[in-house]
Write a protein that binds this DNA or RNA. Structure first.
Lengths: 172, 172
DNA sequence: TTACTGGCTGTAATCATTTTA
DNA sequence: ATAAAATGATTACAGCCAGTA
């Protein structure tokens, strides 16, 4: 139709780009899979075997590399997606675990405080656990006189950071 | 050389593929960005404005869509990679948090056991905390008789699952 | 340095198959 | 159901760049 415009009239004489035969493609694929680069020896050899100009073989390799690259990008994309899914479900599990541990720790701390008050003849054991939980930091300063020396040491922990984290954990 | 082989004699006479001018590309890009599809009205109009055959405009759009697709795949890939990085660092933080909480919980449990043995006039308070920590599961069965009823209830927890997890947490 | 070789990217064009109006 | 348009896969080329003889 409009094949004879000023810009395109040159190539309407069909540049039939004949497709390669299946056999040719097959051989090229095999060769490519063993090595996606093409030294000139291999190029000549393949050109011979295929009945194609070496130039065309080189171009085929060129295009194949490009295709292969975008293909592998897609494969990588799917793999990455899988890894992300795994990481996210790990994340969910860990978050639940953290919540559970915080609850348990909270209970343990409440119990400790209860123990402490009872063993020191405090009548305030009935104070709600929630209040105690959120005022643990103060216990560090206010209640230590009432703890057995040995147990206090255990509460504070052997590591320097433990005493800090121990009471702060349920609020972060 | 062998440009006249049966398979390739056709296209060696240069099918000059002229590149479009910058202005032409610019206009095409603008048009494409507003709509990556091309109805025939727009095609004719663009062909007119560009001095190109409508056929070539259509081809440009087709190729552009293909390019755009693989480009956006790469963009998506990077975005996905970013999300994975974030998820993995979240993961690392959560794992540390879990470890920390387990340690604290372990210490709290050891303390509870120590408290329990002392308040029940046991002389075995000197038994090492490490041993106690790793035998918590047994405490559930063996020591419950020595815990105050109230405190035992707290240890076991109000929720059905708590009693189980409480002692198993430091070994999973 | 220069000139050559080969690879890569981007673009154009065609062909075959699928979708759609 | 069918002709046109979209799409996917190929073939081909030009321009740029790096290594190198």
């Amino acid at each position: 139709m409009d094949f004879f415009n000023s810009q395109t009239r040159k190539n309407n004489l069909k540049c039939h780009k004949k497709r390669l035969t299946q056999d040719q493609v097959r051989l090229l694929e095999i060769s490519f899979n063993s090595n996606n680069k093409l030294d000139s020896d291999r190029k000549s050899q393949l050109a011979q075997e295929l009945g194609l100009p070496p130039r065309q073989v080189a171009i085929w390799y060129q295009n194949k590399r490009a295709r292969w690259k975008s293909q592998s990008l897609e494969v990588d994309y799917k793999a990455l997606q899988q890894r992300l899914d795994n990481a996210m479900s790990d994340n969910d599990r860990l978050k639940l675990e953290v919540e559970r541990l915080k609850e348990e720790l909270n209970k343990a701390q409440e119990m400790l405080l209860a123990f402490n008050t009872t063993t020191n003849n405090y009548s305030s054991i009935s104070s709600s656990c929630d209040e105690v939980g959120s005022s643990c930091l103060q216990l560090h300063d206010q209640s230590k006189h009432h703890l057995d020396k040995e147990l206090y040491a255990c509460l504070i922990g052997d590591e320097g950071h433990f005493g800090h984290n121990f009471f702060a954990s349920s609020m972060s």
